[in-house]
Amino acid sequence: MEQLTFSSAQEILGFLDSALGRDLLLVPVWMRNLAYRLACLQEPDNTALLRRAASDLQFVGPDWNDTAHQLLRSAEALEAARRDGGLGH
C-alpha cells in the first residue's frame, strides 16, 4: 500500500493493469478506488484516466454511480473546453 501511495499515475495504472488483467477481483474495491483516486489527483486533466476510473466504479456496483457520473461529466467538460480552445492539451 505504501508503494502505491507514492507511485506516479502511470505506475499506479501499470499496477492495476497487471493485477486486474489476471483477475478482476484480485484487488479489493477499496484499494482500486484509492488507486484511481490517487492517479486522478495526479492527472486531473487526463480524460482517458477519468473515464477509466468511472468505468471501474460502475463495474463495482451502484453505490459508486454518482461518483462515476461526476468523473464522466468532468471528462466531457475538459474535452469541450479543449475543443473550444480553453485548454492547451
Rank of each mutant, 00 (worst) to 15 (best):
R22N: 12
A81Y: 04
T67L: 06
G86S: 05
S18Q: 14
R83E: 10
A48I: 00
D45C: 03
P28E: 11
L26W: 09
F6V: 11
A39R: 02
R82V: 01
W30V: 15
D17Q: 03
D63A: 15
L24I: 11
R82C: 02
S55V: 11
R52S: 07
L38Y: 09
W30Y: 15
R22L: 11
L50K: 01
G14S: 12
G85T: 06
R83C: 08
E76M: 02
G21H: 10
A75Y: 00
A75T: 00
A54V: 01
E76C: 05
E43M: 04
N65W: 14
T5Q: 15
L41P: 06
S74K: 04
I12D: 03
A75S: 00
L57V: 04
S8E: 05
D45F: 09
Q3P: 07
W30S: 15
D66R: 09
L25G: 14
R22W: 13
L87Q: 03
E2D: 12
E79V: 03
A9H: 07
Q10G: 12
A48E: 05
P28F: 12
P44M: 11
L16W: 06
E2N: 09
D56W: 04
D84E: 13
L34P: 08
R82Y: 03
L13M: 06
V29K: 14
V60K: 08
L38F: 06
A81I: 04
G86E: 04
G88L: 07
T47K: 00
R37M: 08
E76V: 00
A39I: 08
L13S: 07
M1Q: 14
Q70E: 12
E76N: 02
A77F: 01
L25T: 13
N65C: 08
D23K: 08
L57A: 07
C40D: 06
R51Q: 01
L49E: 01
R51M: 02
S55H: 13
V27F: 09
F59D: 14
D17E: 01
R37S: 06
Q70L: 09
S7C: 15
R37W: 10
L20Y: 13
N33I: 15
M31G: 07
S7V: 10
W30H: 15
R83V: 07
L26Y: 13
S74R: 04
E76T: 00
A81M: 03
L16Y: 05
Q3N: 08
A39T: 03
L25D: 13
G86P: 04
P28D: 14
A9Q: 10
D17C: 00
Q58G: 10
F15E: 05
E79F: 03
M1P: 13
H69V: 02
M31A: 15
A68V: 02
F15Y: 10
R52Y: 07
Q70V: 04
